[in-house]
Amino acid sequence: MATPAEALLSASLGLVGGVLGAVAIERLKAGVASLEAEFVRLDTVEDELFEIFEMPADIADRSSALRRLVSKRRRLGQNIRRKVIDGEAYKSCKAQLVLLDGLLAKAEDAVPLTDDIERDIEAAIARLRSQLRRSSKTAKAFAFLRGDA
């Protein structure tokens, strides 16, 4: 039979472990929500980039749409930098972000949308999404919990 001190210690450790576990799960859930927000941002950037390419060059709203999209792309890059912890994985993401910057420059120059540009946009977004799924802090936490890390 346990002494009162041992029972108190056991209960305290159980409480602390439960609180720490709950905190870890909440952080993981927040990480998943944050990662999902980045996927939504990626989809938005892709959709808006296609819309800008389809806009005629002489429409006044085109320049404001381009400024908003450049701002979203910049924010996307900042968020990816925080989420991707591995240097090599970030370099791969950065390469796709630079490709998106080049596509934005083409949109600013009112280059017409071609099949090649369309494929480049879709491929860059797909590679960014894939890289984020594999390399984000949240993905690393899931791998650790599964025992894959």
Score class of each variant (00 low, 15 high):
S63M: 11
S63W: 02
S63T: 15
S63G: 10
S64F: 04
S64L: 09
S64M: 11
A65W: 07
L66K: 02
L66M: 05
R67S: 13
R67L: 09
R68C: 05
R68H: 07
L69F: 00
V70H: 01
V70Y: 00
V70Q: 06
S71L: 09
S71E: 12
K72G: 07
K72E: 13
K72S: 13
R73L: 11
R74N: 14
L76R: 01
L76Y: 00
L76A: 03
Q78P: 10
N79G: 10
N79M: 07
I80G: 03
R81H: 12
R81W: 07
R82P: 04
R82I: 15
R82S: 14
K83Q: 14
K83L: 14
V84Q: 00
V84S: 00
I85E: 12
I85H: 07
D86P: 04
G87E: 13
G87P: 03
G87S: 15
E88D: 11
A89Q: 04
A89D: 04
A89S: 07
Y90T: 02
Y90G: 00
S92C: 11
C93Y: 00
K94R: 15
K94A: 15
K94L: 11
A95K: 02
L97T: 05
L97P: 05
L97W: 00
L99M: 11
L100Y: 00
D101L: 08
D101P: 04
D101A: 10
G102P: 02
G102F: 00
L103Y: 00
L103H: 01
L103W: 00
L104A: 13
L104Q: 13
A105Q: 14
A105F: 02
K106I: 07
K106M: 10
A107K: 03
E108Y: 10
D109L: 14
A110S: 07
A110L: 08
A110E: 04
V111L: 03
P112Q: 14
L113D: 02
T114D: 06
T114Y: 03
D115K: 14
D116P: 04
D116C: 07
D116A: 14
I117M: 04
E118H: 12
E118M: 12
R119S: 11
R119L: 04
D120Q: 12
D120K: 09
E122G: 03
A123H: 06
I125V: 06
I125G: 00
I125M: 01
A126S: 13
R127V: 15
R127E: 15
L128P: 01
L128A: 02
L128V: 03
R129H: 09
R129F: 01
S130D: 15
S130G: 15
Q131M: 13
Q131A: 15
L132Q: 02
L132V: 06
R133Y: 06
R133A: 13
R134W: 06
R134L: 14
R134D: 12
S135N: 01
S136D: 05
K137H: 12
T138K: 05
A139H: 03
K140E: 14
K140W: 09
A141K: 10
A141L: 09
A141M: 09
A143R: 15
A143N: 13
F144K: 14
R146K: 12
R146F: 10
G147C: 04
D148T: 12
